[in-house]
Each structure stands twice: as C-alpha cells, then as structure tokens.
C-alpha cells in the first residue's frame, strides 16, 4: 500500500500485546521515548483469546503510574486494529505523533523533537 507514517516512530514487535509488561512501557520512556502506544488486535479478535484485554489493563495501570510521577498519562495509549488495517495504523501513528508533539518533549529542558515509540502486535 506504500502508506507513509511519521518516520520517528520505532516499532517494537511482540507476538501478542499480552506479552507487553508494565516494565516494557516504562523502559521505553526511560530510554527517551516521548510517547508510547500499544497497537493490539481488535477486542474479541485476540488469537490467544485475551492478550489484548490484558494489555489494556496494563496500559491503564501504567498510565496511573505515570500520572503519579508527574508524567502526562496521555503520553501512553492503547489502540486496537487488525493486521489488515494498514491505513488505520498510519492514521494512528500520525494522530499519536501529533498529540505528543503538542505535549512537547518528555524531558525538560531538551531540544529533541518528539519521538513516539510504538509497540505493534
């Protein structure tokens, strides 16, 4: 489809979003990501039955954790889309990048540009 999406996204592949632990989300921030989104399968469509639902709970927990240390929880999000929804992925990538750009760099002061990371499954 030759779709384009922001080049500052780094994709980390996991077999299923059920593999994504809280520590993986936090490590991304620790390593300098300004935002992170988890791209899981559509709810009800998980090949492993409930991997994406588990990920949803973990993302919610991690968002609360981030809020408690003064990080805007909007920097972490979960989206649900199927493997056949390439255009939607590009759209989400643009949406998330725009949101993070608006929030500005994660670390202050910093001259870096926003670099959201993505975890896709």
């Amino acid at each position: 489809m030759r779709l384009s999406y922001p080049t500052n996204i780094r994709i980390i592949k996991v077999p299923c979003t059920g593999r994504v632990a809280i520590i993986h989300l936090l490590k991304a921030f620790e390593k300098g990501a300004d935002g992170v989104f988890v791209a899981g399968c559509l709810e009800g469509d998980c090949h492993y039955q409930s991997g994406n639902l588990r990920a949803k709970k973990r993302v919610a927990y991690a968002r609360r954790l981030l809020a408690s240390i003064g990080v805007d929880p909007e920097r972490l999000a979960m989206y649900n889309l199927s493997a056949g929804m390439g255009p939607r992925f590009a759209e989400i990538a643009r949406e998330m990048t725009a949101k993070i750009r608006e929030l500005g760099p994660f670390l202050q002061p910093s001259g870096r540009t926003a670099a959201p990371q993505a975890t896709a499954a």
Binding site: L26, K27, L66, I69, G70, V71, L107, Q108
Partner: peptide
Amino acid sequence: SALRIQNMQA
C-alpha cells in the same frame, strides 16, 4: 524504572 523516570523529569 518509575523512580528513574521521575528523576529524569525532575
């Protein structure tokens, strides 16, 4: 990790 992130922010 959370403490380190908080630390980086501060």
